[in-house]
Computed example of a mutant assay.
Amino acid sequence: MRGLEYCFSTLGCSDLNLHQVADLAKRNGIEAVELRGLSGTLDLPAALAAEFGKPSGLAAFLSRQKIRVAALNTSVRLFDGPDLSPIEPFIAWAEAAGAGYLRVFDGGSRLSKAGMVQAGDMLDAWQAMRQSRGLKVDLMIETHDALADFEQLVAFVEQVPAARILWDTHHTWAKGSGAEALWGRIAASVVHLHVKDSALDGDGRRHYVLPGQGDFPMAGLMSLLSSDERRLPISLEWERHWHPELPPLEDALTAASGWWRQGVF
């Protein structure tokens, strides 16, 4: 067990530019960030171009920082499009940042075998292009829509074992999947994790709360991860961009400092 790499998504501070994000990470002892929104927009290539000019400017900035960009998060959906060409504007920035992954959503609702085959073909085409261009960045697929369902996620990783998975642990848990049973089936495919906390309101609906104030089973998740030999990024996805009523990300990071470091970590 090598421990985890603590991380946060800029979905929680999408008004900040990357200079400010790096300062926020440093203040909170965070080692890595995943980029989703910057400078008030989710159009990362445009935001990075406005701040740094060219990818080489981003690379020069990051060379002076003690922060790693774990991923650039796109809005592309694997199961809802004919191909993965919309990720092209992100590639040069991801390479300059030294990011390991570009995030794509799963999309869809109910997956057919034909749909899984098509997705596998698209991922094969991506890998062929990646090798021909000598790219280091790869794709990871978030468990957001169809793949938040236990049976569909397990079927997908069995059908497409080379797929890399961003496991949004809250999404699968909220849909009724036990972390232990699911981890036992998908662990080899998982390269990144999202965590967040929530509680039920009086109408039986979930709403996000500061880490540690809800009922997400973080202790159980951390116990599961303790046996993994990889240094997986565990990222706080504080969805303030979509839920502006939430407290600032820095408050969430302060609350998370004990919540996600409990147990052996």
Rank of each mutant, 00 (worst) to 15 (best):
S177A: 15
R2A: 15
S226N: 10
I165D: 00
E88H: 11
A155C: 03
P247S: 13
A146V: 06
Q159M: 09
H19I: 08
L224T: 10
H241A: 15
G115L: 02
A174F: 01
P211G: 10
T172C: 08
E142C: 10
A60V: 11
V191I: 13
M140Q: 12
D197W: 02
L58N: 10
M140V: 14
P89N: 09
D43Y: 07
L38T: 12
D228T: 12
A252K: 04
G263N: 12
I165H: 00
L147Y: 05
H194I: 12
L224K: 04
Q152G: 04
S85D: 14
W259S: 03
L44E: 04
D83Q: 08
A188Y: 07
A188F: 08
L84S: 06
R77V: 03
E5K: 14
V209Y: 00
L16P: 04
I87R: 00
T169R: 04
S257W: 00
A199W: 03
S56V: 13
A148T: 11
L18I: 10
G29V: 11
A252F: 06
R185W: 00
A99G: 08
A70S: 15
V33R: 04
I141M: 01
I67M: 11
R110F: 04
V154F: 00
F90W: 11
Q118I: 06
A60T: 15
A119S: 09
G258I: 11
S198V: 07
F90D: 01
F156C: 12
A46W: 03
K136P: 01
A187L: 01
F79E: 04
L225D: 06
A128D: 13
K196D: 09
L24Q: 11
G107A: 08
T169V: 09
G176C: 05
A60H: 14
E239D: 15
A99F: 07
A49E: 12
C13M: 04
R205I: 11
F79D: 05
P248K: 08
P217S: 13
F156G: 10
I141P: 01
E31P: 04
V104S: 01
R27G: 05
M116N: 08
T74V: 12
G214H: 07
L102S: 07
N73G: 10
G120V: 09
V33M: 00
Q20Y: 05
I87W: 02
V195P: 02
H243C: 06
A60Q: 14
W238L: 05
D106N: 06
A47D: 05
K196H: 12
S257V: 05
Y101T: 13
G178M: 03
F105W: 13
L200E: 14
H243Y: 14
N73Y: 04
A181C: 05
A32V: 11
D149C: 07
L58Y: 10
E237L: 03
Y208I: 13
G134C: 07
L193W: 00
G3W: 03
L182R: 02
V160Q: 00
I234Y: 00
V154K: 02
I141D: 01
R64Q: 15
Q127I: 07
S9Y: 06
W259V: 09
W93I: 05
L72R: 01
A59Q: 12
Y101H: 14
A49T: 14
R164S: 09
A155R: 12
S85W: 03
Y208W: 10
C7W: 02
V160D: 03
S198P: 00
C7E: 09
P55W: 11
I165F: 00
F90R: 05
D251R: 13
A256W: 02
A125R: 12
